[in-house]
């Protein structure tokens, strides 16, 4: 019953709202109403939550809800048309694209910010200051399981101490991204490490173990700087900065912190962009993202990149009218 009323409200709004919206884009927000449902990545969740919170002041009668069923779980719902927007910490996979096609779901992919993955060790670890991607691969690839057990197996001058590994759990988009960037194949790594979906658990693990090496999101490092030591990562490609590069807002932004900085996305359903409140919300998302991504611990895109995303979206939703 509720659904029917909602559908009627939305269609009437979509029918009469479009032209009004164009004339007075700013003052039109007051009269917007309807529901916008967002789900997906728990990494992107804080950004969407912040935007939804701010949007409440902008358009109080639009009900925006945000879930956190994970990038993959979100895409499953997205491909059935059950949600309007999916938060994603990686790009859509082929099989997810196929599912969308099957259900006649068309969509647009928009970048909303960056996240850096930090390689960390215990603060008393005085031998590792920088590490190459090849060395990280040697540590994390599936063949290393049970073999690479001591620091000196990675570099002979490092001590013959055990190495203890901590990393994102295999269900997370973070794990997919890290293995793709380091091992070269998504979702493939050694299994004998301590994994957790909760980065705070990894922070605890690395900070309490002198022989530890781990990786997690930049925001978690920034909040726990005193207990951890970041390792500079060298991708041995001098084109984007020479030698080991430490993660920071600047190095993630200018892309010299490669390959461990990743873009974060939202995917918007094409049917949803026919509704004025969704158009307004996504515009608002991209306009407030520079400030809000920073506020919740991520790295914003550059202004011209946001402009490009805004233009891409404007073109997309006007083509769907």
């Amino acid at each position: 019953m509720n659904k029917i009323i909602l559908a009627v409200v939305i269609t009437t709004l979509a029918a009469c709202g479009g032209s009004k919206e164009e004339k007075t884009p700013e003052s039109g927000t007051e009269s917007l109403s309807g529901n916008i449902s967002i789900d997906g990545s728990s990494t992107v969740y804080p950004i969407s939550e912040a935007v939804a919170e701010e949007f409440r002041k902008e358009a109080p009668s639009v009900k925006v809800t945000v879930g956190l069923s994970g990038t993959g779980g979100g895409f499953k719902k997205f491909s059935r048309g059950e949600i309007d927007i999916n938060d994603a910490s990686r790009t859509i996979k082929e099989e997810e694209m196929a599912l969308c096609k099957e259900h006649n779901i068309d969509y647009i992919e928009l970048e909303v910010g960056y996240d850096g993955l930090v390689v960390v060790v215990h603060p008393q670890n005085n031998w590792v200051n920088e590490i190459t991607v090849a060395e990280l691969k040697k540590i994390w690839e599936p063949e290393a399981q049970g073999k690479i057990k001591y620091w000196n197996q990675i570099r002979p001058e490092w001590p013959k101490e055990e190495i203890h590994l901590y990393g994102a759990g295999v269900e997370s988009g973070t794990y997919d991204y890290f293995t793709e960037a380091i091992v070269g194949k998504s979702h493939s790594s050694r299994g004998d490490y301590t994994g957790s979906e909760d980065d705070n658990v990894l922070v605890q693990g690395v900070s309490g173990d002198k022989n530890s090496l781990g990786f997690f999101g930049l925001a978690y490092f920034e909040e726990n700087k005193a207990k951890l030591k970041a390792v500079a990562v060298d991708d041995q490609n001098d084109a984007n900065g020479k030698g080991g590069i430490l993660p920071s807002v600047e190095t993630v932004l200018n892309k010299s912190y490669a390959p461990l900085s990743r873009p974060l996305f939202i995917y918007v359903n094409s049917k949803a962009v026919q509704r004025p409140e969704v158009i307004r919300f996504v515009d608002f998302y991209l306009a407030s993202a520079p400030e809000l991504t920073k506020a919740v611990g991520f790295v914003p895109l550059r202004p011209e990149e946001y402009k490009a995303q805004q233009d891409k979206f404007a073109q997309y939703h006007s083509s769907k009218k």
């Binding site: 789900d39 969740y45 969407s48 939550e49 939804a52 919170e53 409440r56 009900k63 925006v64 809800t65 945000v66 879930g67 956190l68 069923s69 779980g73 719902k77 059950e82």
Partner: peptide, 11 residues
């Protein structure tokens, strides 16, 4: 979470 309970619901 599987059924679709959300984390941010403003009502």
């Amino acid at each position: 979470i599987v059924v679709g309970a959300l984390a941010y619901v403003p009502f």
